[in-house]
Design a protein around this nucleic acid. Sequence first.
DNA 1: GGGCTTCAGTAGCAAAAGCTACACAGTGCG
DNA 2: CGCACTGTGTAGCTTTTGCTACTGAAGCCC
Lengths: 223, 223
Amino acid sequence: MQALAELQRFTPFKALAGDSQTLLAQGLVTKQCGSADMALHKGQPVSGAYVVLAGRLRVFSLSPNGTEATLYFIDPGETCVLALNCLFNDLLYPAWVQAETPSTIALIPGAVYRRLFEREPAIQNLTVHTLSTLVFRLMSELELVHSSHHKQRLANFILMQSASDGVLHMTQQQLAQHLGTTREVVARLLQEFVARGWVSTRRGAIAIKDLFGLRELVSPGAS
Amino acid sequence: MQALAELQRFTPFKALAGDSQTLLAQGLVTKQCGSADMALHKGQPVSGAYVVLAGRLRVFSLSPNGTEATLYFIDPGETCVLALNCLFNDLLYPAWVQAETPSTIALIPGAVYRRLFEREPAIQNLTVHTLSTLVFRLMSELELVHSSHHKQRLANFILMQSASDGVLHMTQQQLAQHLGTTREVVARLLQEFVARGWVSTRRGAIAIKDLFGLRELVSPGAS
DNA sequence: GGGCTTCAGTAGCAAAAGCTACACAGTGCG
DNA sequence: CGCACTGTGTAGCTTTTGCTACTGAAGCCC
């Protein structure tokens, strides 16, 4: 099957025993998401484990007043841990998931995943490791949120998310949404960054000019 | 052994196979913490899994500018998940842990815990479940932080942490630390709550007078 | 009771963030 | 070219939060 072959490009699924492979193949479904499609809604019951095969998903929370904030991204080969979480605890999904770019997602039904978990050490490790990673990301995010101003968070976001050429292709509106703030705040802060010669802005993108200036702002003294 | 007996009061450790019991008994260490003692420092390497036997631990993060914020609490029978997390990923501990009340902690060495994890389904489930719970708590906390003002967070904290008689025994300074803000802000907000007849304040404690008023503030319209 | 420490209540000011509003630049299209 | 649409740069104002400082009240020890 096509989907199974795709899935087996990624480590933990390569090493499964023969009958586990069959089990996996039986229930596997793939799902295509166009850019900006919602993959999962908040409050939706979770039917299985999600593994991203291609593209990129964005997990974010949406507050009553309309501001959203990105929690983290899921890249190919990674699984959506929140879904795992819900799977093992019978919870409703606690956030929103949207495709950043057109994406392909493999969906392993809950029952199948649980059986795999019982018998395959590789899946056990994958599960624990994935959960751990998420915990770590959330901790970092949480620490970041209440230990720093928007100024620092913006600098950090630019540093972390810019492509290897130091350019971040994103409108200020999107940037504001990722940080859970408004466009004006982003514009004001960027204006200051530009004045200091740290970045340059143009329509739809931001280019880093002084990496160390930004770094110094994010973690002062850590040179 | 005393410590083992203590540990076995809690579910997953009751159901272990005989040889697992022996394994567990070999490496088990207990640790006493007085009130406000630090159980774990940030950046400290983690030597094993922590299970709280008695008392209560507080996990919090500390930002460069000195403000701290409570991430969550660990009650008897629960394990410190962050420690588990570090254990499986060889990470340094990412936060601080302090005893809220005098506490007893059982420490299961890393190697022992990993072997238990491999062979005991009960421990596997415990691990996954504990991690999941933490993920959920962190998600909620993160959502709360950036979707609501201090006013709402304070109301929420009072509702969640007050004893069954509706009284929260805590100074305003401590309250401010839990929320990652300052005493003045807490005092100002409480003043407003008092004016609306929602709570009454006295030295070292806050008493809830109008549960529904507070609830309405936390989640408007949810009656 | 007197003196000390801790906690609570207030005030005033400065910084940060959010909201509304508008002018202008860039892009695409007929 | 003119037009519409989207993204950016500003401005002014309000609310929230943070910081400094002082006063008074509650509890504790001698």
